[in-house]
Design a protein around this nucleic acid. Structure first.
Lengths: 148, 148
DNA sequence: CCAATATTATTCCGAATGCAAGCATATATA
DNA sequence: TATATATGCTTGCATTCGGAATAATATTGG
């Protein structure tokens, strides 16, 4: 039996811890956003009309609807997202990115890009990074919530 | 500017969500262990004398010492781990794997290996899986808490 | 048209976590 | 030796999260 799948999973779990440690702090101190906040805003920024329903956000973020509700509350107070009711379905209330939110997520994303680059700055060739991105992308192919 | 580092990070975050979703449920229902419990036991199983101090466990699991204390409590009640005081340093209290813990972690690890293999059962060559494991391993090289 | 079911969002509650504080012990320094 | 500092662990507190229950609305099937 091959050991590679198990090793890949264990290393992925460890790498995730590393990312949280390296990214969360600076993202919060510079932009006032938790990593999950930034990901939420990034999903909005990439959505048509820069808005999504809460269940849609929940699926993309692998979170429960209650988490989305609570996560959005502070973002609303900060004026980064707003609410829009659907004309045809009174149950839906979209989370929509405001202009301030658009600006903030652009800044946060720039920081994330920079820190992502830093992560590979040592002993990584461009081809290796691309291979890693490709393989990880295949792992989540067909999943909702792809964020490119 | 290359987009590969950012794509790799985003895909890694997504892949981690996928793992949690696919692994946590079955691991809990079959073995009565959360994923973090299993990882803790696996670290113990690989340690000399199958025991580690709590701060050591905290570093390896990227958790706070208080989390380790509280995580170990139920495992103690289940008889999977025990306590051992250090002869020379009265501050230390090792978490040591019991025989029951050794058996349980072996079962859980077998399940994890199987589910890891399942994760790549479609459209993945052995070489690709090995490459992914290798690249992820390089990402966490030099970090504490490597688990192979 | 009406009843049954499904969907969306929110709130409540229990579980898990980190930080800060506190306690006990060990090490370093004067 | 005596004091100051560092280390290991635990506990209290605040925060975050998911699941269940709830409420409002929509859809489906008779």
């Amino acid at each position: 039996m091959s050991n590679a799948p198990f090793a890949a999973v264990l290393h992925l779990l460890r790498a995730h811890s590393l990312l949280e440690e390296r990214f969360a702090g600076e993202l919060a101190s510079i932009h006032g956003l938790a990593l999950k906040d930034a990901l939420l805003l990034m999903h909005l920024a990439r959505a048509p009309l820069t808005r999504l329903s809460r269940v849609d956000l929940a699926k993309r973020l692998n979170a429960s609807p209650s988490t989305i509700t609570r996560t959005c509350l502070p973002l609303e107070k900060l004026g980064l997202v707003g609410r829009e009711d659907d004309q045809r379905d009174a149950r839906l209330s979209y989370v929509v990115l405001t202009d301030a939110g658009r600006a903030r997520v652009a800044e946060a994303e720039a920081t994330l890009r920079q820190k992502s680059a830093d992560l590979f700055s040592d002993r990584w060739s461009e081809a290796e990074i691309a291979t890693l991105a490709d393989l990880l992308g295949r792992l989540t192919a067909g999943q909702p919530g792809r964020l490119s």
